[in-house]
Design a protein around this nucleic acid. Structure first.
Length: 307
DNA sequence: AACGCGGGGCT
DNA sequence: AGCCCAGCGTT
């Protein structure tokens, strides 16, 4: 039985209404929120936004939707083109999953993004968060949309903590469910509004409490903004000299190449032989790279994006 | 529950 | 030099 914060229901009224009003005035004019948005456009935006900031997603999203406006369009594309269009959004496996998702939508749902949680959740690349976001943002349904922004907003305003715990808890889900309005349209609006507040005002680094519509009702403010109780967060993932950096360099090389790339070119961007072999093997296993064996004893193998 | 997975910009 | 970002899939 998940623990429901008894304060949540009483605090909800003092928080939800001001945030909805604030959103009406201050919301960013993002293309996937426009009146002419489609469920597919919303789904594409959510996948792109998985760990990639809005400012980098926006231009890529516009180009992507112009090129592949419907799931059936993306389903028919070459994976190499898909990976090139993904460009430097990061985590290119997401691009392949998005195409698999488009193909699944065509095969299972007649080319239309499904509007029920179970069907969405079964799509490649769609987890708990993305399924809820599509239900709320594309279909106006009530869903518990709990991303990093909303987690932080609720941890502070309701929980009185500086930051949420490193990993999401069942208690947070119960609390978010208790705070969300009952009416579907209002719940959907609360979802996007609370997320926007976390992105623009209730930020991780230096929150702008002077501009916050719920500062007066904020439990964290009420106790003097105590520091993060979880203190040591997760260990920061290294970057320089890692496989992730090497994989990124190899993918950048292959994206920019018109055709297959000789092994020597890969060696130039990843000189360490062991790392290079390990990364190429993992990229092939992930379906991001295909290798062609040497055509002769004096030839090198070549590498390319999957066609 | 913990880990691997890109990449860039900000402090 | 960290830290953060509309997370997901695998182990």
């Amino acid at each position: 039985m998940p623990f429901v914060d008894p304060a949540a229901s009483t605090v909800a009224g003092a928080i939800v209404e001001p945030v909805l009003d604030w959103y009406d005035e201050r919301a960013r004019d993002l293309p996937w929120r426009a009146a002419d948005r489609t469920p597919w456009g919303v789904l594409v935006s959510e996948v792109m936004l998985q760990q990639t900031p809005v400012v980098r997603v926006e231009p890529a999203w516009r180009a992507w939707l112009a090129r592949w406006p419907r799931p059936v369009d993306l389903a028919a594309a070459s994976p190499a083109d898909v990976l090139r269009a993904w460009d430097r959004l990061g985590y290119p496996r997401r691009a392949l999953r998005l195409q698999e998702c488009a193909r699944a939508i065509v095969e299972r749902h007649g080319g239309e993004v499904p509007d029920d949680a179970e069907a969405l959740r079964a799509l490649p690349g769609v987890g708990e968060y993305t399924a809820a976001a599509v239900l709320a943002f594309a279909f106006g349904r009530r869903a518990v949309v709990l991303d990093t922004n909303v987690r932080r907003v609720l941890a502070r305003s309701v929980g009185g903590e500086a930051l949420p715990s490193p990993s999401q808890t069942r208690g947070e889900v119960a609390r978010a469910d208790a705070v969300a309005p009952h009416d579907p349209a209002r719940a959907a609006r609360w979802a996007v509004a609370s997320m926007e507040l976390g992105a623009l005002v209730c930020t991780a680094r230096s929150p702008r409490c002077d501009a916050c519509p719920v500062a007066a009702a904020c439990a964290w403010r009420a106790t003097g903004c105590p520091p993060d109780a979880h203190a040591h967060r997760r260990r920061t993932q290294a970057w320089h000299g890692t496989d992730r950096q090497a994989r990124g360099r190899i993918m950048a090389l292959l994206r920019e190449a018109m055709g297959p790339v000789p092994a020597a070119a890969v060696e130039a961007v990843c000189p360490d032989r062991e790392r290079r072999e390990r990364c190429l093997a993992s990229l092939v296993a992930d379906g991001l790279v295909v290798s062609h064996p040497a055509s002769g004893p004096d030839e090198d193998p070549t590498y390319a994006l999957p066609t």
